[in-house]
């Protein structure tokens, strides 16, 4: 199976690990991520205002470029923006009409593409049971906390990713790799996001609470799908530390691909 793939800016530079391990694991699991020929930065934040049309264009172009079918994402922010702009294109007549006027394509785009997160491919197309069977190095004994953050889950009605308050997909993923998933209260609370540029103290307090909450329940390492969450957790946490990995890195490790891939590089 070949899926259209939207990597996004950060995955081509600062979050290469998120991307490389995802591609390697895909290959091992029998599917391929075919990068869109032409894509632009999604804009990183979803434009909330009804009249913010220009801010939706880049996402709409990438969605239209995927033609009919699935478009797979990895970065939480890209996924969030693409999924929500796609929902606007499908259900918000005013936005759809205005965006199409700018796109200037022959055929109008009205949200035909399905935006899938890589995790959703793993869960619904491959199956966590199947992944568990393919695991070569089970991560037995490792106590891993899933850090969902905000963007994958909310708003639940549009994202349709998981129960926004009691999510389970990452825990099921962790369990499939042989590790022990640990649930903690702050797994769906904000990391402080872009405040890292303007109010480092605030970000520090927020990720500090996340890590403290995880540690209290016995988490030894965190996984995330978001480069900014990962950065804030690693760099900004005040007076505390916790190893943080991208979920794909863990997947590659369990599938026995990590050493291989590192050697190649």
């Amino acid at each position: 199976m070949v899926y259209n793939y939207y990597p996004g800016c950060t995955l081509s530079t600062k979050a290469k690990k998120l991307d490389i391990y995802a591609r390697a694991a895909a290959k091992a699991l029998g599917f391929e991520l075919a990068e869109l020929k032409e894509w632009q930065c999604c804009g990183a934040v979803y434009p909330l205002a009804q009249d913010a049309i220009g801010e939706r264009l880049a996402a709409a172009r990438s969605l239209a470029a995927a033609e009919d079918g699935k478009l797979v994402t990895l970065c939480s922010a890209c996924h969030h923006v693409l999924k929500r702009v796609n929902a606007d294109m499908a259900a918000n007549g005013e936005i759809c009409a205005k965006v199409n006027a700018y796109l200037g394509e022959e055929e109008t785009y009205h949200g035909q593409t399905e935006v899938w997160h890589y995790l959703e491919i793993l869960k619904r197309e491959i199956g966590f049971d199947e992944i568990a069977r393919r695991v070569k190095n089970p991560l037995t004994g490792r106590k891993i906390g899933a850090y969902y953050g905000c963007l994958l889950l909310r708003p639940a009605g549009v994202m349709q990713f998981d129960d926004a308050e009691n999510p389970g997909i990452l825990e099921d993923f962790i369990a499939a790799l042989g590790a022990t998933p640990i649930i903690y209260d702050y797994r769906n609370e904000c990391c402080g996001g872009y405040l890292t540029l303007t109010d480092k103290q605030a970000t520090g307090e927020m990720v500090g609470r996340v890590i403290a909450s995880a540690r209290q329940k016995g988490v030894a390492e965190l996984i995330t799908a978001c480069p900014l969450c990962s950065y804030n957790l690693e760099v900004n946490a005040l007076g505390t530390e916790m190893p943080v990995h991208y979920f794909t890195e863990l997947l590659a490790e369990a599938l026995g691909l990590k050493e291989e891939e590192t050697a190649c590089r």
Binding site: D163, A164, E165, N166, I183, D185
Partner: peptide, 11 residues
């Protein structure tokens, strides 16, 4: 109450 996960009933 599980529908309102923020109250932590499940955990």
């Amino acid at each position: 109450p599980v529908r309102f996960g923020e109250f932590g009933y499940l955990h």
